[in-house]
């Protein structure tokens, strides 16, 4: 167990020490500082400000661009490790390991971004936390914030997997174009009543009750997950490039 934890952090450190992670970190800092200076009003509370960050299309676009760079870096590092790859029995094991690494590194980037956002807000909004009731659903706004952050994190994770499968099923240049198209196309998607675009879930859905919003989110994530599972199986059978 101790070894597993040490290996986990060593692998994470390998990712963090790449030059690309420095770029990701720079984007995160600029994105959050810019968000704090350009987006917020003086009367916004700490909690309102967090919502403002995570519901702003441009903020999410940059955050997801960081996730895309992270996925790409993870794939590149993995594909250079022939000594590891040759020890897998088959392509299923190969993709499972790559999947785990993409999830781990994406979560890490998301958490780093969240910490940076919290720290910056702590500097400028420490006097007004703004704990209270969310009028729309008549529930605690802290409860809604927790739900909202978890949902955003899960959807960003699913998008990271979309990037992974696009990159493993196409050649590099086409893959990059498709991923960016997917990102930009969905960030600016229009609002529609069925909530079928992932970008809808970066907003507060307009539902009758909080429970209804939770159920809609679970259904969306479930359907997204099933589609990705099908794409995962397809990728196992069709990916051609296994090493760099």
């Amino acid at each position: 167990m101790k070894n597993k934890i040490r290996n986990f952090f060593s692998e994470l450190n390998f990712f963090v020490s790449s030059e690309k992670f420095l770029l990701i970190f720079l984007f995160i800092i600029i994105n959050n500082v810019y968000g704090a200076t350009a987006l917020l009003f003086p009367e916004d509370s700490y909690i309102d400000s967090l919502f403002s960050f995570f519901t702003w299309s441009y903020y999410l676009l940059i955050l997801q661009l960081c996730i895309f760079i992270s996925v790409n870096t993870t794939i590149n590092q993995f594909e250079k490790n022939g000594a590891l790859i040759i020890r897998f029995k088959n392509h299923k094991e190969y993709l499972k390991e790559l999947f785990k690494r993409v999830v781990r590194n994406t979560l890490f980037v998301f958490i780093v971004n969240l910490i940076v956002a919290l720290l910056i807000l702590n500097l400028i909004r420490f006097y007004n936390i703004g704990i209270g009731t969310m009028d729309m659903y008549n529930i605690s706004n802290v409860l809604y914030l927790i739900f909202y952050i978890i949902r955003t994190c899960v959807i960003i994770l699913l998008n990271a997997l979309v990037f992974l499968y696009i990159m493993k099923n196409t050649n590099k240049n086409i893959g990059i174009v498709l991923c960016l198209f997917y990102l930009v196309g969905n960030i600016f998607s229009f609002r529609e009543p069925l909530y079928i675009f992932y970008s809808e879930y970066f907003n507060i859905l307009i539902c009758g009750t909080f429970i209804e919003e939770v159920i809609r989110s679970i259904i969306f994530i479930g359907v997204f997950g099933v589609i990705l599972k099908i794409v995962h199986e397809y990728t196992i059978k069709h990916m051609k490039k296994l090493v760099d």
């Binding site: 040490r6 060593s10 450190n13 390998f14 590092q77 490790n81 000594a83 590891l84």
Partner: peptide, 8 residues
């Protein structure tokens, strides 16, 4: 050349 982890 393999890709070993630098801090192990």
């Amino acid at each position: 050349g393999p890709n070993f982890l630098p801090d192990l």
